[in-house]
Computed example of a mutant assay.
Amino acid sequence: MNDKFFIQAGALLGAVAVALGAFGAHALKAMLETSGRADTFETAVKYQFYHAIGLVLIGILLQNCAVNAERYYHWSGYAFLVGVVIFSGSLYTICFTGIRAFGAIAPIGGTLMIIGWVLLLLAAGKK
């Protein structure tokens, strides 16, 4: 996959994060506050949005990167994308279903996001 994929994925994740954030702040506000899940929902949206920006950045960096850095950027992007799906997805699932067992999955996504940042660091060090 090329730089365009990560820019498009980041743009889509960003748009969905804004929509979910607005939906949570308005239509779901009472439900999230009653269930005590407003902070959980906000965390899911924030991390999704941060990593959406990261994906766009990776796509831009891929446009002019050194050949030996390309694979690090790609793996960083994949780690961000899968990490967001697992991390934010598990938190959204908890908010909408109340099934707290999905909280056990969130650290897998968080770990993938950390790995993505480390891979981005390694890519930046390649010349």
Rank of each mutant, 00 (worst) to 15 (best):
T93C: 13
L13D: 04
G109P: 09
E42M: 14
I86N: 03
C95K: 01
A30E: 15
E70W: 03
L81M: 06
Y73A: 12
S76P: 06
F23K: 15
D3S: 08
K46F: 15
R71F: 11
I115K: 05
I7Y: 08
M31L: 12
A27M: 06
D3M: 01
I105C: 11
I114C: 10
D39S: 13
A104Q: 10
T43Y: 00
A123R: 00
Y72E: 06
F80N: 12
K46S: 13
A66V: 13
G125A: 14
A79I: 02
I60R: 14
F23N: 10
S35R: 14
G103K: 04
G59W: 09
D3A: 02
G14R: 08
G10A: 08
W117P: 14
T97W: 13
V118N: 03
I58H: 05
I94Y: 05
F96N: 11
I99C: 04
A19Y: 04
L61F: 09
R100E: 14
V18G: 02
T97I: 08
E70T: 13
G110W: 03
A66I: 15
V82M: 01
T111G: 12
L13N: 07
N2L: 02
T97P: 09
I115D: 05
I105P: 13
L32C: 13
F49N: 04
I99H: 14
V85Q: 05
F102V: 00
A38I: 11
L12C: 13
Y78H: 08
V67K: 11
M1G: 08
F80W: 10
K127H: 15
G21M: 06
Y92C: 05
R71S: 12
A66Q: 11
G98E: 02
N64E: 15
R37N: 04
F80I: 02
E42V: 04
F5V: 06
I105T: 02
T93Q: 10
S90A: 15
G54Y: 05
L61T: 07
A9C: 09
S88A: 09
T111A: 10
G77P: 03
W117E: 07
I115R: 10
Q63T: 13
G36F: 10
M31H: 09
T43G: 09
G110A: 11
Y72C: 12
A104R: 08
V118T: 01
A79W: 00
L12A: 13
T93D: 07
T97C: 10
G24R: 05
L20Q: 06
L112E: 09
G109W: 01
N68T: 09
L112F: 10
T34I: 14
R37W: 02
A11F: 06
Q63S: 09
I7T: 02
G89S: 03
F6H: 01
F6I: 00
Y92G: 14
L55K: 15
G83Y: 00
A11Q: 04
V45A: 12
F102K: 01
F41N: 02
L81A: 01
I99Q: 03
G103H: 09
W75S: 14
G109D: 03
V84K: 12
S90I: 00
T111E: 06
L121H: 07
A17P: 13
L57F: 15
L81P: 00
S35E: 11
